[in-house]
Design a protein around this nucleic acid. Structure first.
Length: 218
DNA sequence: TAGTAGCT
DNA sequence: TTGC
């Protein structure tokens, strides 16, 4: 067994508390990552990755797609959830049950036993792509947590407080890591630093992040 | 240049 | 203001 694999074994079952209501579950997606990536390929064949535009008129560096009943979209008019993909005019692809069940299990492990996600935002980062500091606040039901799954190239996740100016924790996220935040942490600001150049055996020059949300009130 | 402030 |  090589050292990389030993490191992975050592991460199994480990979790870290970032704040009340926020945890990193290390390595939870590792064993099923290849299968998850196949499912994501299926989604992106129906809803291609695209660079959305911010309300300020700038293109985002992250390539985005969605699955589930609702998808997150951004354009000059603002941020919102939509039942149709504005690029194709069709409904978003269904959320694969394997992914949905995994997200529900991660939420339960982190202390949110009743998670019922209806939206999954798929963010694909090339080297240099980033997400600047923001809150996830477009969902009407803030009692549901956010479940974030990291695949492929590593990234540095910044996890802040409830005010933009609050200090941020720097969290290194690698292939297979899962972050869950909700409850009192639900509206904490967060960001992703520019992804560094690299190569991953399963994703090549990409980081793929899945965020599962409950985007409708019911 | 990494970290921060301020922007409409 | 999920960017510059």
């Amino acid at each position: 067994m090589d050292d990389l694999f030993a490191d992975h074994d050592a991460s199994l079952g480990r979790s870290e508390v970032l704040a009340e209501g926020a945890r990193v579950l290390r390595g939870r997606a590792h064993a099923r990552a290849a299968e998850f990536l196949e499912l994501i390929d299926g989604v992106s064949a129906q809803a291609p990755f695209r660079n959305m535009t911010t309300p300020g008129g700038y293109p985002m560096s992250v390539d985005m797609s969605c699955c589930g009943r609702l998808g997150w979209v951004s354009d000059e008019r603002g941020y919102r959830y939509s039942v149709t993909d504005p690029q194709t005019g069709r409904a978003w692809p269904a959320m694969p049950e394997l992914l949905r069940g995994f997200a529900i299990a991660c939420a339960a492990e982190a202390g949110f036993p009743d998670f019922s996600p209806d939206a999954c935002l798929i963010n694909r980062y090339r080297p240099g792509a980033k997400l600047s500091l923001h809150q996830d606040r477009d969902e009407p039901d803030l009692s549901a947590p956010i479940v974030s799954v990291s695949l492929g190239l590593p990234a540095t996740f910044l996890f802040g407080g409830l005010r933009r100016s609050d200090p941020q924790q720097r969290v290194g996220l690698v292939h297979g890591d899962v972050v869950v935040w909700g409850g009192p942490a639900r509206l904490r600001f967060h960001a992703v630093l520019p992804v560094r150049e690299g190569e991953h055996p399963l994703t090549g020059r990409y980081r793929i992040n899945l965020t599962f949300r409950k985007a409708s009130r019911t």
